[in-house]
Computed example of a mutant assay.
Amino acid sequence: MVIRTRDTVRTSDVGEARGALARTHNVTELTVDGGGGSFRFEETVVASERLSLESTSCTGTVSGTVRTGADVVVTWFKSGRGTIGEHRAPIGRPILFHRDDEPFRWISFQQDTLRIDRDVVQKAAAERGGWAPHPLAFKPYHVPEGATLAAWWLMIRTVAAEILEGPAEVTPERDEELTVIAAAGLLTAIPHWPAGERNASPAKARLARAEAFMLEHTTEQLTVQQIAVAAGMSVRGLQSAFQRTHEATPLEYLKRIRLQMAQHLLTEGDADTVADVARQVGLPHLGRFASAYHAEFGERPSQTLRTARGSR
């Protein structure tokens, strides 16, 4: 069995916070500045050997140089300010550590970090791209939008739910399956190619072609037959591939992508009506949209929109 360890640190002591960060992250030149006021730090880490999820909040300033080593490391800020290298980390968008030694500075922040075994990511990329397993280059500091961002958040919700709420012991097979799901979500969100090449080329694997077709035509009324033809697969083969990789049928996966896009539009608070958002994401039947949205997120879309407008 694979053991998922869980470690939580809550402290108002700068030195204790620094020690916790030093244990969690492979960081050189690590500094933690409490800012002279009331200092609070909290970090929860749930990890297996292949996959870990870290949630950190800090009222001070943390800086240093991260060494990614054997993992691909991607982070996203919920609040605060941060830079990775010379690039500002956007709120609510994943940003990848691209170099093995990358400087960072995070100020009064809430942030989550996902670490994925690099070998698993490279193997998944090779299967999707139709090349031999090879070190990867990623588009520097790419910020996904639209359907690819929705695919990222769908993966995070799937992975986080199991890591945070699932059992502490899982089979090696399930640990590998979840790591592959995480890798697939990352590779969908961030353009990549074998190191040494100049830029990304279209993925050759049939499943990757199916995913790309769906993300390019997310708001259109697609059928599973159309997706299969675009990917060069049989309907049965397409269904099996999606079940293995996304634990959903192609149309279930597509609907969840649309719902993620809808949630993003609603939480921005700029939408005129829920019906407008439903049409924008390709779910024009308002009653069905509202029911599916409630099943996915636990609240009605009108409530999400009201909350967003109120917070603004």
Score class of each variant (00 low, 15 high):
Met1Ala: 12
Val2Pro: 01
Arg4Pro: 08
Thr5Phe: 00
Asp7Ala: 04
Arg10Ala: 06
Ser12Asn: 12
Asp13Tyr: 07
Asp13Asn: 12
Val14Leu: 07
Val14Trp: 05
Val14Ser: 04
Ala20Leu: 07
Leu30Asp: 04
Asp33Lys: 08
Gly35Leu: 11
Gly36Asp: 12
Gly36Glu: 13
Ser38Val: 15
Phe39Ala: 10
Arg40Gly: 11
Val46Glu: 15
Ala47Gly: 15
Ala47Tyr: 15
Glu49Cys: 09
Leu51Ser: 15
Leu53Asn: 12
Glu54Pro: 09
Glu54Phe: 14
Ser55Met: 15
Thr61Ile: 14
Gly64Asn: 05
Gly64Cys: 11
Gly64Ile: 13
Thr65Arg: 09
Val66Phe: 12
Thr68Gln: 02
Gly69Phe: 00
Val72Lys: 03
Val73Trp: 00
Gly80Ala: 04
Arg81Glu: 07
Gly85Tyr: 05
His87Lys: 03
His87Leu: 04
Ile91Phe: 00
Arg93Tyr: 12
Pro94Trp: 05
Leu96Cys: 06
His98Asn: 09
Asp101Arg: 08
Glu102Thr: 11
Trp106Glu: 06
Ser108Pro: 05
Leu114Ala: 01
Arg115Gln: 02
Asp117Gln: 03
Val121Asn: 02
Gln122Arg: 03
Ala126Met: 06
Gly130His: 10
Trp131Phe: 15
Pro133Tyr: 01
Pro133Gly: 06
Pro133Arg: 02
His134Trp: 13
Pro135Thr: 05
Leu136Val: 12
Ala137Trp: 07
Ala137Cys: 13
Phe138Thr: 01
His142Arg: 01
Glu145Asn: 05
Thr148Lys: 06
Leu149Pro: 02
Trp153Leu: 13
Thr158Asn: 07
Val159Tyr: 04
Ala160Pro: 09
Ile163Val: 14
Ile163Trp: 02
Ile163Lys: 02
Ile163Gly: 03
Ile163His: 04
Leu164Asn: 04
Gly166Arg: 09
Gly166Asn: 10
Pro167Arg: 14
Glu173Asn: 11
Glu176Tyr: 13
Thr179Val: 15
Val180Ser: 05
Val180Pro: 04
Ile181Ala: 09
Ala184Thr: 12
Leu187Arg: 11
Leu187Met: 12
Thr188Asp: 12
Ala189Gln: 06
Ala189Cys: 09
Pro191Lys: 12
Ala195Glu: 13
Arg198Gly: 09
Asn199His: 15
Ser201Cys: 04
Lys204Leu: 14
Arg206Trp: 08
Leu207Asn: 11
Met214Gly: 13
Glu216Arg: 08
His217Arg: 14
Thr218Gly: 03
Glu220Gly: 03
Leu222Asp: 06
Val224Met: 12
Val229Ser: 07
Ser234Gln: 07
Val235Gln: 10
Gly237Arg: 03
Gly237Ser: 08
Gly237Asn: 07
Ala241Leu: 05
Arg244Met: 14
Glu247His: 11
Glu247Ala: 11
Thr249His: 02
Tyr253Cys: 05
Met261Arg: 12
Gln263Asn: 04
Gln263Glu: 04
Gly269Ser: 02
Gly269Asn: 01
Gln280Lys: 08
Leu283Asn: 10
His285Ala: 06
Leu286Gln: 02
Leu286Thr: 00
Gly287Met: 01
Phe289Ser: 10
Ser291Arg: 08
Glu299Cys: 01
Ser302Pro: 02
Gln303Lys: 07
Leu305His: 01
Arg306Pro: 00
Ala308Pro: 01
Ala308Glu: 02
Gly310Ser: 09
Arg312Thr: 10
